[in-house]
Design a protein around this nucleic acid. Structure first.
Length: 883
RNA sequence: GGUCGCAUAGCUCAGUUGGUUAGAGCGCGCGCCUCACAUGCGCGAGGUCGUAGGUUCAACUCCUACUGCGACCACCA
């Protein structure tokens, strides 16, 4: 069979992906007699597009799923998308404005929701298609959406149950308001941005008599809403003035001086202005002292009527105007440069306005308390484990969750209020009549639930909860959750809480927190900064297998990965690591070509082929190494060390199988009897077979393409058994021989290269050493001749060393190249001196250690012995080189 | 402000329970189109393992402090 010289990913990828899908290889059904393995993917936003973080996340997902599938588990990887309240609504609102110059209020709630649905069905979920390009083997039939019908039922059920527990309540609190999105958001969605600003000191004159109070603020515009000045109750400086009033500048409003422990005597004058309507702390102070709430900033971020002459101004314009007015009135004392954190909305970057509002909240205390022990007992294991401790800490300090959002896209709060008797009804099904007065005038709460409230149910809602489905029975708890650091609390901790509450089980046995992908100089990857990489572009340049392998290769247990690529304006110029992985895929491809080219008539089946006693040392060596590689690769995957996994395979396939075994096999293939040839062919096929299986979780496409060429009609490689170790293959005694042989070959190559001996010229080699070593090398002579381009070999075990020859020492064996006219005596002398110097240093180091009596006395016997051996070895080497 | 992570070759990174001649890929230098592969083959140069102390016979590895980068948490004007 003919394979092209270089691996061409594109057509191969499309071909096999659709073939897998057509044959249902990704599907999982409940099969009681098989071990289940289940992952529900973190649902990306339905509006989302694939970025490098996703690419890494899903390379990991698919590697694990394919690995487990090959291990014989009945694997389900369940995909889906998140309705992403704000993001999706905003997208359609933008479109509505661009195309029709209308706002959502112009079209009305029902129509708007209808349009968002239409958009979602038409454009949504593009990211799931992009995941296919990466090769993800997910059960697409089971794709879920956090707003689909069944999911909606689950969300309402959860709300009602929490409500019945008494944990969900409605109340007025200081909340984080986004003036752009016009909704509240939870604390976890607030991102603090460190900013260089100013601290302004303002003079408030006493209402009666002389004197003044100086207060400081970073937000001067809020002073318009001040309703008090607070000082610490034990701050003596202020005792005389407690209970008196100051006049609020610009507003001419007298406000009291109150005593409250919130005021820090060490700060400035010890007095602090109190704006209950616009600051969370002040809100609390206001409650304690019954202060009025004066709202000077409205929901839209503009100043209200209560801001007097500043009404209508945007909050930031108002700041300037207030400062100017204060300055003119002589109220501004000074301003200091000041660094502080500004709360912003993580979705849109708008500065949050803290406002008192009535919302739905959930008290998380009991739920958190019930969850902490499960984490402490490691019922869910975290990789790396430190994230478990962070989660416990977060649960210990948990705060109430703001559940409601002033959006139209989402799960509407299942609460109705009777227009007649004002009874509040909370239930999943819309009630027809008031349960108390039977009135039909019922009005549903206009708000929708935080998107994270619905995602918190993901692992079990997708498997059919609240129904007791066979899937819930069989696949739950799921095995693994793979996600990024930033949603550890926002999502992961909440899933564990809800699962323990509703299902009585943890939702997943393992949580894997994968690294964040950064640019190669450690910056955030961001489209707006031009540092973004489109994974599809990478796939186009290097292939999906190379992209996956490159991501896995860089995926260790650190918190960040600096992705090795040169990027300009969101375009990849070059990615060295991905290129390396493409080369590796090509290497595998060509190794396969070699094996296939040498097949005789029928496709060889080669199961259970042990290296056997009669096998050559190269066979025994490669099988020993295969065994080790299987062991290490499997262990690495089980510990989610994808870097280890890929490096093990890279080294084995390229550095051992291709560089040595195949090269040696060529001689046996072309220069032996038919029986030997057949044996070698079978071993090559078997090794290739094992390599393909080992690699398949990382490189699904190229391995499938080769597999099909090797075993046409045998079904996909993705359902073959993952390689297992075999004790027959363990032959540690052969390693030393192989390493020795390799070193002899390398030393000859090195001598040739150093002396500029052209590769075309065959040289004579004289080996000097003990009889055993010489016998072994004599047996391998044909390999030595081919691998080091040697014409003839002479063996000496005593007597005179050759003169005028280049020399190298490998253990106890000496290698001589009598190059005659080729040799440049000066160069050879320099080379030898360099070797001698190097050996001298090592000897010196060893002798120093051995000369230390403490070392002899205290170090482990084995360590001392090794050091002695080392000293002897270098002594020998120096003696030989000096001859 | 609190907690945590990271600092190893020009670049991106490995380095297991303290004892190795500190590794890989890329890049670089030299030589090769050797019949699987130039997306290749062979050889080589390049590191006082962030700084300063400490523990130990022995520290890249353990401890302390510091510096730099980063993350998370936190209502202080």
């Amino acid at each position: 069979m003919e394979l092209p010289k270089a691996y061409a990913p594109k057509s191969v990828e499309e071909k096999w992906y659709s073939w897998w899908e057509e044959h249902g290889y990704f599907y999982a059904e409940v099969e009681k007699d098989r071990r289940p393995y289940c992952i529900t993917i973190p649902p990306p936003n339905v509006t989302g597009e694939l970025h490098m973080g996703h690419a890494l996340q899903h390379s990991v997902h698919d590697a694990i799923i394919r690995f487990k599938r090959m291990q014989g588990y009945n694997t389900l990887c369940l995909p889906g998308t998140d309705h992403a309240g704000i993001a999706t609504q905003m997208k359609v609102e933008q479109q509505l404005w661009q195309e029709e110059k209308k706002t959502r209020w112009d079209v009305g709630r029902d129509e708007m929701v209808r349009r968002i649905w239409a958009w979602t069905e038409k454009y949504g979920g593009a990211i799931l298609k992009q995941l296919r390009a990466l090769g993800c083997s997910y059960d697409w039939r089971r794709t879920r959406f956090t707003l689909d019908e069944g999911y909606h039922k689950a969300v309402l059920e959860a709300f009602v149950r929490f409500y019945q527990r008494g944990w969900i309540y409605r109340g007025e609190r200081m909340v984080n308001w986004c003036p752009r999105c016009l909704t509240v958001i939870s604390d976890l969605e607030v991102e603090e941005v460190t900013t260089q600003g100013f601290l302004w000191y303002i003079r408030y004159p006493m209402h009666e008599g002389n004197g003044e109070v100086v207060v400081a603020t970073t937000r001067p515009e809020t002073m318009l809403g001040d309703t008090a000045v607070a000082v610490h109750p034990e701050d003596r400086r202020w005792h005389a003035r407690l209970g008196k009033q100051v006049v609020l500048p610009l507003m001419d409003r007298p406000i009291p001086i109150v005593a409250d422990e919130y005021a820090d005597p060490k700060m400035g004058s010890g007095a602090v202005k109190i704006t209950p309507a616009h600051d969370p702390n002040d809100f609390e102070v206001g409650k304690r002292h019954n202060l009025p709430l004066v709202r000077v900033i409205g929901d839209d971020g503009r100043m209200t009527e209560d801001a007097g002459r500043f009404a209508g101004l945007d909050r930031f314009e108002a700041r300037k105007a207030v400062l100017q007015a204060l300055e003119q009135g002589g109220y501004l004392v000074k301003r200091d440069a000041y660094e502080y954190n500004i709360p912003t909305h993580d979705k849109c970057g708008t500065i949050i306005e803290p406002l008192p509002k009535e919302q739905w909240f959930m008290n998380m205390k009991l739920l958190a308390q019930a969850t902490i022990p499960a984490l402490e007992r490691e019922e869910t294991k975290y990789f790396p484990d430190r994230f478990r401790n962070y989660s416990i800490e977060w649960l210990q300090n948990i705060r109430d969750w703001t559940l409601s959002r002033q959006l139209w896209w989402g799960h509407r709060v299942p609460v109705w209020t009777c227009g007649d008797c004002h009874e509040v009804i909370v239930q999943a099904e819309p009630p027809a009549h008031c349960s108390k007065c039977n009135s039909g005038r019922l009005e549903q709460d206009p708000d929708v639930l935080d998107t994270w409230f619905s995602s918190a149910l993901w692992p079990f809602a997708t498997l059919g909860w609240p129904a007791r489905t066979p899937e819930m029975e069989y696949f739950y708890p799921t095995n693994l959750l793979i996600t990024s650091r930033e949603i550890l609390y926002l999502w992961v901790a909440r899933m564990i809480m809800t699962s323990l509450e509703f299902v009585g089980k943890i939702p997943f046995h393992h949580v894997l927190i994968h690294p964040t992908i950064l640019t190669r100089d450690g910056k955030r990857m961001s489209k707006s900064l031009g540092t973004g990489i489109d994974p599809l572009e990478l796939i186009g340049m290097y292939g999906a297998d190379a992209t996956r392998f490159a991501l896995l290769y860089q995926c260790s247990s650190t918190q960040d990965v600096r992705f090795d690529a040169d990027v300009e304006e969101n375009r990849v110029l070059r990615s060295m690591t991905t290129e390396m992985c493409r080369n590796f895929a090509n290497k595998v491809w060509n190794a396969a070509r070699f094996v296939l080219m040498n097949l005789d008539e029928e496709p060889v089946t080669s199961e259970g082929l042990p290296a056997g006693e009669e096998a050559e040392f190269a066979d025994r060596w490669i099988f020993h190494r295969l065994n080790e590689t299987i062991h290490k690769a499997t262990e690495a995957l089980e510990n989610y060390r994808f870097d280890d996994y890929s490096k093990q395979l890279y080294e084995f396939v390229w550095g051992e199988f291709c560089d040595w075994y195949v090269e040696m096999a060529k001689l046996r293939l072309y220069g032996s009897n038919a029986a030997e040839q057949k044996k070698v062919r079978q071993r090559l096929v078997f090794l290739l077979d094992q390599i393909l299986r080992l690699l398949h979780p990382a490189m699904p496409f190229v391995t499938e393409e080769i597999w099909q060429a090797l075993y046409p009609g045998r079904g996909s490689i993705m359902v073959q058994a993952y390689p297992a170790t075999k004790s027959d293959w363990v032959q540690p005694d052969v390693i030393g021989n192989m390493v020795f042989f390799m070193e002899i070959v390398r030393s000859v190559r090195n001598l040739r290269a150093e002396l500029n001996c052209p590769p075309s010229k065959e040289v004579k080699v004289i080996l000097f050493g003990c009889q055993d070593n010489l016998n072994f090398l004599r047996e391998q002579e044909r390999y030595l001749r081919a691998l080091a381009r040697v014409g003839s070999v002479e063996y000496l075990n005593d007597g005179e060393r050759p003169r005028g020859a280049a020399t190298a020492v490998v253990g106890e064996t000496e290698v001589y190249l009598p190059l005659g006219d080729l040799i440049n005596l000066e160069e050879e002398k320099t080379r030898l001196n360099r070797e001698l110097a190097r050996a001298g240093e090592e000897l010196e180091r060893a002798r120093r250690k051995l000369g230390n009596s403490d070392f002899i006395a205290k170090a482990k016997e084995e360590v001392v012995r090794r050091e002695k051996e080392k000293a002897e070895e270098f002594e020998d080497k120096i003696r030989t080189l000096n001859l």
